[in-house]
Simulated scan of single mutants.
Amino acid sequence: MSYVVLHPGMGSISPGHYLPATPQTVLWGRLPCAADAAVLSIASGDVVTIDTLSHEGLLEDQGRDPLAFFGGHGVAAIDVLTDAVALAASDYPRDAEADGPHVVTGPIEVRGALPGDLLRMTLLEAAPRVPYGVISSRHGRGALPGEYPVGPGTVSVFTEVDTDPGYGTEAGALVGTLPLVPGGDRVVRFPLDPFLGIMGVGVAGDTRPHSVPPGAHGGNLDISLLTVGSALYLPVQVPGALAYVGDPHFAQGDGEVALTALEASLRVRIRFDVIPAEEAAALFGRLTGPLAETDEFLVPTGLDPDLDEAMRACVRAAIALLGARYGMDQTLAYAYLSAATDFNISQVVDRVTGVHARIRTADFGA
């Protein structure tokens, strides 16, 4: 396909704030805490264009050389992102054993945000920066850690992106393609719906959290509903919120069973809004963890290392949300959720598993 690779500063960038991904503006393997200095300061309501980097092709088990890694799959050097090359070649102090794999851009100070407030992060645009991505499976990880990969070493499946006018209902939609067997001509095509696996706020204290497990701060939620037009609400933990984004995906099935989904770099536009504590309480009650919202759904979450406990936490969060938002009796809310709401497994591969509910706002006349 004909495609423009979005190197730093290249391509169409909306007026206003632009935050590239450089060794000075990212954290690699850790998430921001109160001791971190913001790399950008904005006002509530501002929109920021942010370059994000996928970690695939940068990691040590892939050679920490994206030019060589992607070149081995036929990608020309000019089509390998220069910021990915620069980060991999830098002396960034990442401990491959102790730190996570993810590259996060930020933190961003949202002036006026205080603990008790909510930060709403609305994804306005998510543009693929390259026409390819990677799906990886690593030993000891994923939903079937004792069974896959079937051989030694990491399996990183290179995935091309193309347009397919005959696929689905949208002419020229972007699709991912995989062969049915290695080297084969027959392929499977699947739709792309880009989103950010990581959206979060800084935590209190002076210890940066590991980038893999999600929590009340958001982080590595991997909720595939968080595509363009959706919003994520997070309880602010530190003054200024210290927001960040990363772990860009082109596509993901709920569960993300192989450890990663289709990981690839995105350029995103996000609006950051501070919801004052009193207004937040009126809208959502006492929100202690991430809450997503789409045009169709309210999406409370449950997080726990035990998937059963994550499910229970999500149900409790959903009942509390219905009570706060609509004044619904808790027994009737429990019955409604059983009859009308889907509970989806967000992911089972990030140490802390995730469940999210899809509550149709139309059911309540909204």
Score class of each variant (00 low, 15 high):
Glu296Ala: 14
Ala126Leu: 10
Glu60Ala: 14
Val150Glu: 13
Phe364Glu: 08
Leu58Gln: 12
Val104Gly: 03
Leu178Met: 04
Arg111Ser: 15
Gly246Trp: 00
Pro66Thr: 01
Gly176Glu: 10
Ile198Lys: 02
Gly71Tyr: 10
Leu232Ile: 08
Thr122Met: 05
Asp206Ile: 13
Leu27Asp: 03
Leu180Gln: 09
Pro248Ala: 13
Leu144Ser: 10
Ala21Thr: 02
Val155Tyr: 14
Asp164Met: 07
Leu58Phe: 12
Gly29Met: 00
Pro182Ile: 11
Pro179Gln: 11
Asp295Asn: 14
Arg64His: 15
Asp308Arg: 15
Leu178Asp: 06
Gly11Cys: 00
Thr49Arg: 01
Ala84Ile: 12
Thr288Trp: 14
Met199Tyr: 15
Leu40Glu: 07
Gly166Phe: 07
Glu279Tyr: 10
Leu6Ser: 01
Leu225His: 13
Gly302Phe: 08
Val228Asn: 03
Ala34Cys: 10
Ser12Trp: 09
Gly205Tyr: 05
Val349Phe: 01
Asp295Tyr: 15
Ser156Val: 07
Leu124Ala: 08
Asp95Val: 08
Pro152Ala: 14
Arg312Val: 09
Asp308Ala: 14
Glu263Ser: 07
Leu226Cys: 01
Val187Tyr: 06
Met199Leu: 15
Thr227Ala: 15
Ala21Val: 00
His73Thr: 06
Ala318Ile: 06
Ala216Thr: 13
Leu226Tyr: 08
Ala77Cys: 12
Ile270Glu: 08
Ala204Leu: 11
Thr260Gln: 02
Ser230Cys: 08
Ser136Glu: 10
Ala171Met: 12
Pro8Trp: 00
Arg186Lys: 07
Asp91Pro: 07
Gly29Gln: 00
Val26Trp: 02
Val155Glu: 07
Gly57Arg: 01
Thr301Ile: 06
Val5Ala: 09
Phe297Ile: 02
Tyr148Cys: 15
Thr353Phe: 14
Val352Phe: 03
Trp28Cys: 06
Leu234Asn: 10
Thr207Gln: 11
Gly140Ser: 05
Ser14Trp: 05
Val245Glu: 03
Thr122Tyr: 01
Gly205Met: 04
Glu56Lys: 14
Ile319Lys: 09
Gly205His: 01
Val236Arg: 07
Ile78Pro: 05
Ser12Val: 11
Asp95Thr: 05
Thr177Phe: 11
Gln62Glu: 13
Leu31Met: 11
Ser346Tyr: 12
Arg325Trp: 04
Arg138Thr: 06
Gly100Tyr: 09
Gln330Lys: 10
Ala318Pro: 03
Gly16His: 05
Met328Lys: 10
Val85Pro: 15
Leu298Tyr: 14
Thr105Cys: 00
Asp342Cys: 01
Asp254Gly: 11
Ala113Leu: 04
His210Thr: 01
Gly151Ser: 15
Gly354Met: 14
Leu178Ile: 07
Ala318His: 04
Asp46Asn: 12
Val257Asp: 15
Gly197His: 00
Ala282Gln: 12
Cys33Glu: 12
Gln62Ser: 06
Ala261His: 02
Ala261Leu: 03
Val39Arg: 09
